[in-house]
């Protein structure tokens, strides 16, 4: 098969350091605005929304679930509704499912067909999530992938790989690190990384001073 198993462009870079696609995207916007197919203000608003979302949103959900068992149950039952409780909009996907990592089960998420991702709760996906090798190996060699991310699971942990092939978006509820009993909800949220909510990392307690 192809040698081109990486996810960046080979197109020549222009003088300003941009690929030809950049000029193409701008020309497309120009044409669509001229034709009144889209409004420039709508496009700007979409950009604002896109950059306003970040893993901090998902981290708030996780931290609340860590400190409030009843909230956690509601999150696992219906993540969209639980997000609304925290004034978080979980985006256009009709169903958002939160899955819980425990001492015996570890979840990780991939989209092998494209790059489905809970963007409204985590922001835009990282490049590696969209890359061809991740999309291939997350299903064929998940332990190898986790090892590359520095995560080694105990022998008796069941690894569950979620391939989000359709309309459902998945967010992982990682395990609360040991030694964080004294931390506030806000401090806990700061420990929750993007990668831990994709399931390729585990949050760690802050080093004690």
């Amino acid at each position: 098969m192809s040698e081109h198993d990486h996810d960046h462009s080979h197109d020549p870079i222009t003088a300003d350091g941009e690929p030809p696609a950049a000029a193409r995207a701008r020309a497309l916007e120009e044409l669509l605005v001229e034709k009144a197919v889209v409004q420039r203000e709508d496009v700007r608003r979409n950009i604002d929304r896109l950059v306003s979302r970040s893993p901090a949103d998902g981290a708030r959900l996780v931290a609340r679930a860590w400190v409030d068992t009843e909230f956690k149950e509601r999150l696992l039952a219906d993540a969209r509704a639980a997000a609304q409780e925290l004034d978080l909009d979980s985006g256009p996907s009709p169903v958002v499912v939160a899955v819980e990592n425990t001492e015996t089960v570890h979840h990780m998420v991939v989209c092998t067909l494209c790059s489905c991702y809970p963007r409204a709760l985590l922001g835009p996906p990282p490049d590696w999530y969209k890359s061809l090798p991740y999309r291939s190996r997350a299903v064929s060699d998940p332990h190898g992938v986790l090892a590359e991310f520095g995560l080694e699971l105990d022998e008796d942990v069941e690894l569950r790989v979620l391939d989000s092939t359709a309309d459902v978006r998945y967010i992982v509820l990682p395990r609360k690190p040991e030694g964080t009993e004294e931390l506030s909800e806000q401090e806990l949220a700061a420990l929750v990384t993007r990668d831990s909510m994709i399931g390729v990392a585990q949050p760690v307690a802050p080093a004690t001073a």
Binding site: V139, D141, P142, H143, G144, L153, E155, V157, E158, L159, R160, V161, L162, D163, S164, T165, A166, D167, V168
Partner: peptide, 13 residues
Amino acid sequence: RRGAGDTTLVDIF
């Protein structure tokens, strides 16, 4: 490679 209990979950129509 390991983990006889490992699973893959896929959404299918």
